[in-house]
Computed example of a mutant assay.
Amino acid sequence: MKTRQTSISSQSCRICLVRHGETAWNTERRLQGHIDIPLNETGLSQAEATARSLARAGLHFSALYSSDLARARQTAAAIARTHALTPTHDPRLRERHYGHFQGLTFDEAEHRHPDHFRRFKARDPHFALPDNGESLNALAARVHAALEDIARQHAGETVAVVTHGGVLDIAHRLATGQALECAREFAIPNAALNWIEHTAGSWKLIAWADESHLQGALDELPDT
């Protein structure tokens, strides 16, 4: 779904959310979490395609924010070059920490930890995986805080935020009011464009999952 950019009020902040480009672990359907995996060649090409698309659209971004993990930083760097921006790297925009699932494929996680996988797949908002795993509630709290801070600092402006699939899942629910425990019914492709807006304490969804500038992109893993 694409959006046509229009002027915004001085009380609003419009945010273009971009999931990082593809990594080798994305192609393997492997849970990355906080493990610092770089983009693969496809991901690097996707990052450049996203940056070119935003430049062709003539968009002006007042600021660029990014997760501090390499795959997001590399994606943000492409946007920074085409828009003459210096990225601000915020760890609150990191992917969810998946505890002892990190580094495993979905099948491996289910086979090794069936009880934990069942609660994970059910989107129990209170469940945090062992080994420093993060609950959906905890993830939502830090993502909400980061986005609210950005919106407050950039009233009347448009900003870009490069982040991860789990963070985008939270952002979509923040903008639509969908509960954390509901199954995801929206796509989160690598390097797609997603737009939300904050006005007077409320969020709304403008457009989602625009991948018209890409030649196919992997969706985020389900239930993450």
Rank of each mutant, 00 (worst) to 15 (best):
T6H: 15
I8D: 11
I8Q: 14
Q11V: 08
C13G: 02
R14H: 03
R19Y: 10
I37T: 04
P38C: 07
P38Y: 08
E41D: 15
E41V: 07
G43A: 05
A47P: 07
A47L: 05
A49W: 06
T50A: 14
T50D: 06
A51C: 13
A55W: 14
L59Y: 07
S62Q: 13
Y65K: 13
D68T: 13
A72V: 11
A72C: 10
A72K: 02
R73Y: 05
R73C: 08
R73A: 12
A76R: 03
A78M: 14
H83L: 03
H83E: 04
A84M: 04
P91L: 01
P91M: 01
H100C: 06
Q102T: 07
L104E: 03
F106T: 10
E108R: 02
R112M: 11
F117Q: 04
R119Q: 12
D124H: 01
P125L: 00
P125S: 01
F127V: 05
A128P: 04
L129K: 02
D131Q: 12
L136F: 10
L139N: 06
L139Y: 05
A140D: 14
A140I: 05
H144E: 15
L147A: 08
A151N: 01
R152Y: 10
G156I: 04
T163L: 02
G165N: 01
G166M: 01
G166P: 03
I170G: 00
A171M: 00
A175N: 05
G177K: 07
C182V: 13
R184L: 07
E185R: 06
P189T: 13
N194A: 15
G201K: 03
S202N: 09
S202F: 07
W203G: 01
K204P: 14
A207E: 11
A207R: 04
A207C: 11
D210P: 00
D210G: 00
S212R: 04
S212T: 01
L214M: 03
L218C: 03
E220V: 10
T224W: 02
